[in-house]
Design a protein around this nucleic acid. Structure first.
Lengths: 334, 334
DNA sequence: CTGAAAGCGCTTACAG
DNA sequence: CTGAAAGCGCTTACAG
């Protein structure tokens, strides 16, 4: 890793040592502009010998770039695998293209933290995780003309967005239950302010339409966020004859499972339960819960590639389309 | 947030507009050096009117600083609340002192990603989450003389480290079970390469010593990472007469609970189960699991403050000592 | 193919 | 209290 204790060389040092100009060294380093093969080789060799790495900050100042990308997490984002996987994918790709990732978490509603990042010239672009309806963040970034991509669906055509196939996957998961003969499916989800809630709901409805069954709209519950609400919703659904529960994510599913257990309802004997997002908790539950598994890390990678392309990097996206798996487990056994 | 569409002003623009020198503007901005109150006021007012923010990158170049801190996550770090909470705490504090956080995740063993961050002059210091015994990362950072703080215990006196009170808390949790009359406590933990494993084990032993009971060393299991190993360990412990299970973290606890359920063991009737780290999973389990709740976010804040102090910032730590709670739940009911 | 020079936006001795 | 100048480490027209 490090050769010697290591003086930190600058481009000026190299130029001096090699008896050429800084310009030449710079060109040899960047590979831009014509340069003698011998000169290039001498520079290359020096770099290698002394383990030289350019000062990216200085480079950035000269080029008006930072080689940093910001990732913004939503206000009060929950501790779910989604964000970590996303972040891992983004970092992986950024790293590969020599960019670094700066995180910014909202502490309160508003854009102050993002604002600072932008105003301070700390990033070249931003990746916004989890789209929110009517987002202040998006509005701010547009105003400031900061390039950005959004993870999540978007109805704004000016915005570059990318998402897991929540709707299609939701449709397939719902279809599965319908094909098992269930007819009173309850759907439990979180905030209507999140686009993802809408996508999942659409998937649920699509499946019903497809099979010519009318979805019971009274069995669709959103804005469910805590134990109390879950409990109420589960009770309501049950007394309205629900024979299956489709939970929009693993957190809600856990809550629902807790309620069902307390009420002495057996799964899958009495009702089936599925989650629209997989996790270890779903996998190791008793019974293990049938869930949708997305390639969220791949999603992060794709979002990052898109961002890099917007910044003029030659970042080809050679990966396959984002897909998902429907993981069948005991919670839907018949 | 943004006044007008907004030309981006530089210190030179301001100097020109105000008919003073860049030097003066710079001084007014930083508050260093004597300056006329009237001049200072004019600058202040301009800044406010035009929503000027200095280019931190340029500032950094001139001062040989970046106002970025790196946070390093361990190789293949698991998706547990600990890291998110830590990160949130760090970000919160960094933000407050006008620093930003760059993340770096190991993709493979080795230091390549961290190396790049350091060599590229992208950060002023690093916060290493979760100390590992004989860490390459620590060795590299020391060699490079990059300031850093480690989250986790450390036996290296040259290293600044800070940690949750895992040992004391572990002792208290173990004592609780001993006082309930349990005498065959099994301890299940992860990798011995993590310092935290050692701390927790020590706490377990401390409690036994304190009460004059000998801990059954054959009931101490580490290196437990997957379902299979957990299953084997749980069976062994049970046949060795274990009457309580102390799991070092929530992931292991979940695994253990799964095994116990499958084997038809009732909790808390047959055996008690506790976790040395709390989480929603522990809280919403059936039964809910008695756990230790740490202020990991506070830990992140403290680590960040320490880092800032090392960098010469006036970052006073006014927070209370890191503490923890022992949350009693049904899994230990008698 | 190569270099001298200006510039990126700031800071900081040094000299009034 | 204020300014001219040099400098942080790089890039990039422009001119050989």
């Amino acid at each position: 890793m490090s050769e010697k204790e290591g003086k930190i060389y600058t481009i000026t040092d190299i130029a001096k040592e090699l008896g050429v100009s800084k310009t030449t060294v710079s060109r040899a380093l960047s590979g831009k502009g014509r340069i003698g093969t011998e000169t290039a080789e001498r520079v290359r060799s020096f770099v290698e010998r002394h383990n030289y790495t350019p000062n990216v900050v200085a480079k950035g100042l000269a080029q008006n770039k930072t080689y940093n990308l910001g990732i913004v997490f939503p206000f009060d984002y929950p501790d779910i695998p989604f964000f970590k996987e996303c972040m891992d994918g983004i970092c992986e790709t950024a790293y590969h293209y020599n960019y670094d990732i700066i995180i910014s978490v909202h502490w309160k509603e508003g854009v102050s933290q993002i604002q600072r990042l932008v105003m301070n010239h700390k990033v070249d672009g931003m990746i916004v995780t989890r789209a929110v309806i009517n987002s202040q963040v998006v509005r701010f970034l547009k105003e400031r003309r900061m390039p950005f991509v959004v993870i999540g669906p978007s109805d704004d055509l000016e915005v570059s967005s990318i998402d897991n196939p929540n709707r299609e996957a939701g449709r397939e998961l719902t279809s599965l239950l319908l094909m098992k003969g269930l007819r009173r499916l309850a759907l439990i989800g979180g905030s209507d302010m999140h686009y993802v809630t809408e996508s999942r709901k659409q998937g649920f409805i699509d499946a019903h339409l497809e099979q010519g069954i009318t979805a019971a709209s009274e069995l669709i519950y959103t804005e469910v966020s805590d134990y109390r609400k879950t409990r109420r919703v589960v009770e309501q659904a049950l007394s309205a004859g629900a024979d299956g529960f489709i939970c929009m994510d693993e957190t809600i599913c856990n809550l629902a499972l807790g309620c069902l257990r307390e009420m002495g309802i057996r799964i899958p004997a009495d009702v089936k339960v599925v989650s629209m997002y997989d996790s270890h908790q779903m996998e190791f539950n008793l019974p293990p819960v049938t869930s949708l598994r997305f390639d969220t890390r791949g999603l992060g990678r794709k979002a990052c590639l898109e961002m890099l392309r917007m910044l003029g990097e030659n970042a080809e996206d050679e990966e396959a389309e984002l897909s998902y798996e429907l993981v069948l487990r005991d919670s839907t056994k018949t």
